[in-house]
Design a protein around this nucleic acid. Structure first.
Lengths: 225, 225
DNA sequence: CGAATTTAATAGTATTACTATCAATAATGC
DNA sequence: GCATTATTGATAGTAATACTATTAAATTCG
């Protein structure tokens, strides 16, 4: 089977981690470790020990821990948009396309054999816990100029375009989409850690199903589909 | 005029900052500095220099920077719920109560003379940039056990109860409320820094108005009001 | 008033997030 | 095949952060 490679914006790294053995180890192990330790507990020192390399070597790939996070999040949004493109290909009805997109956004990821280096399931957990930290900073405008959030914006644009096709008169397609994208991970977090903030039940795929039903219902009613 | 004091859960501080001059200075200056520097740029060392005290003294009030953030957020959510209680008092119609609550949640805060030590306008900006970081941690369950998020949950419960009154058959009142509470600050952030994620225009109160219209419309349609 | 307790100031530690330097090794070009 | 260049590794170092321990000063209370 073919393996694929997502083209990631060059400004997000110093050396392309997809091009070398060390680079791929950095990506692989950082996903595993951020998932386990959380972004705050994760350091380049610990990572370098894990992959039997040195801090200095890792810094040759990524300017900082924050840039590595941005890279991982960019990878994820690019991957998710690609999944949606793939799954909605040849589907004519925009409402069906929207349903497929929301399904992929809300469902728990299975590991994608096309990208053997990446544990998509772990990466999705990182998205839930850490993705907002990628932009909630004082230097968000600088990061944005470097194209750090292009993948997220592009995904938002895609889903918003489905909504616009269904109802061209709805005025808040992007706001509604970004609200749902954020909710798609927030509600998972709440159901697990702050259950009084949601009805969704955290267990075996149930949250994801609840979340799909909740969000699809909200979107369709809101846009008068 | 009377000045008020919000009773904050004792587990959120080591010494009550509202009881001493130093404590009030810590609160006052930390709001100002977190607003200016961001949570990452803010340190107890800088704060101690600003208020002409020492790091050790500040640590006697708050166990950590993170606990201080939790305290400020708890204060904000308590204050906001109190504002909503005040404003919805004697209003019978639940739909009107919901509208008032959403207005207060989305509008830009003016400084409340009842609490002279707190700059509510600055605190609201901190909520926009930093509030999610209060719970997006690996130790969220421990913080939750200490009651760190009671204010947020209580506010969510209140708004959800208005929704339930309007339509007792809607199944996701809490999920919808928490989604809107989060969106109420996310959309402000997006309109300013990542404008491709929203239609809202960042200027002079316009975002807040847009956001109110967007969210109220979404809620009412979603719950079939 | 004097003992007990609280509060403040000083100094110190472990860790983090990097940076710099230089040697060793591997890949590439002629 | 050998020189050039790029890449990695090893070591060390720095400034700042997040806290802690110790001691000194002030305050409270019986």
């Amino acid at each position: 089977m073919a393996t694929l490679r997502l083209q990631i914006n060059e400004k997000l790294f110093l050396r392309d981690p997809q091009e070398t053995v060390l680079g791929r180890k950095i990506i692989q192990s950082s996903i595993k470790m951020i998932d386990e330790l959380g972004l705050e507990g994760f350091t380049f020192k610990k990572l370098s020990a894990e992959i039997q390399s040195t801090e200095a070597s890792i810094y040759r790939y990524f300017e900082s821990k924050h840039k590595l996070l941005i890279y991982l999040m960019a990878w994820y949004w690019n991957w998710l948009e690609y999944q949606i493109d793939f799954a909605t290909n040849n589907i004519k009805d925009p409402q069906e396309r929207l349903a497929i997109a929301m399904k992929m956004i809300t469902e728990v990821n299975v590991n994608d054999d096309y990208f053997p280096d990446i544990d998509e399931t772990a990466l999705q957990r990182i998205v839930i816990y850490e993705s907002d930290k990628a932009y909630l900073t004082k230097h968000v405008d600088d990061d944005n100029k470097d194209g750090s959030f292009l993948g997220y914006k592009s995904l938002c644009e895609k889903v918003a375009s489905f909504i616009k096709e269904i109802n061209p008169n709805y005025d808040y397609a992007h706001a509604l989409t970004s609200t749902c994208l954020e909710a798609s991970h927030q509600q998972i977090f709440f159901s697990r850690h702050l259950p009084r903030l949601t009805e969704h039940q955290y267990k075996e795929g149930k949250v994801h199903e609840d979340n799909y039903n909740f969000l699809m219902d909200m979107i369709l009613k809101t846009i008068d589909a």
